[in-house]
């Protein structure tokens, strides 16, 4: 049974990396996957920037066409409705940040399968989601303008390269509390892949929440080896 998974959240929560890694993981399992770059608000660090890499891994990419991929226009990828309505296999949707970006998904509501799962990505070390009040407000704002009620939370608290196990732990605790407030399960926790081998206490910290190990794809120019 194929699945449609929508990742949304505030910008900077790490939605794009989560989406990319999630899609790659599905592809590794041999599933047919399409990732949809639905980010119409962020000018840099978008799924379309690693398109070739995704294609090479067997992930189909739906993103604005090359001629306008660098435009600062709210451009919707061509064929997006077709993928949502008729696509076979799994679909992963990366929605642009904040209620503004989520509005784009709201416009595609009729094309979304009724069993599409909305996962809200939470980074508690970002502005506007540092307190439970702020985070609840963020979830309400984003999911209502997306027109898709959340089906779960993704704990993705991190500090970029400076992320340590304790950040993961505290983030998970925070997201858990947020889940209690909102009546939502924490379905996944983002963990930088380099932490996987480094700390044996990780399993304990995760406490049964399935980890999504994150390889960073959206690199800064000095982080590449090209």
């Amino acid at each position: 049974m194929s699945e449609v998974t929508v990742f949304y959240g505030l910008y900077g929560s790490g939605k794009s990396e989560v989406s990319i890694n999630y899609a790659l993981r599905l592809a590794e399992k041999g599933r047919a996957v399409t990732i949809v770059d639905l980010d119409a608000v962020t000018p840099y660090f978008r799924v379309r920037d690693v398109r070739e890499r995704l294609l090479a891994a067997g992930v189909n990419v739906v993103s604005p066409k090359d001629s306008i991929r660098h435009a600062d226009l709210p451009v919707l990828p061509e064929g997006i409705r077709t993928v949502l309505l008729q696509g076979e296999g799994d679909v992963v949707v990366d929605v642009g940040g904040d209620p503004t970006g989520a509005r784009v998904l709201g416009g595609l509501k009729d094309a979304l399968r009724p069993d599409a799962r909305g996962l809200f990505v939470v980074n508690a070390m970002r502005p506007f989601s540092r307190t439970l009040d702020e985070a609840q407000e963020a979830v309400r704002g984003v999911t209502s303008s997306a027109g898709l009620p959340p089906g779960g939370l993704v704990s993705n608290t991190h500090l970029g390269e400076s992320t340590r196990i304790e950040h993961i732990a505290k983030g998970l605790e925070f997201t858990g509390s947020l889940g209690l407030c909102l009546g939502l399960p924490v379905v996944m926790v983002g963990v930088p892949d380099w932490l996987k081998s480094r700390d044996e206490g990780l399993a304990k910290v995760l406490g049964g929440v399935p980890p999504l190990y994150l390889e960073r794809h959206l690199l800064k120019p000095w982080e590449t080896t090209e």
Partner: peptide, 16 residues
């Protein structure tokens, strides 16, 4: 949480 926050450069400059 420590005083560290993950900030986008633009937001960080505004806060600063």
């Amino acid at each position: 949480m420590s005083e560290s926050m993950l900030m986008k450069g633009n937001e960080a400059l505004a806060e600063a």
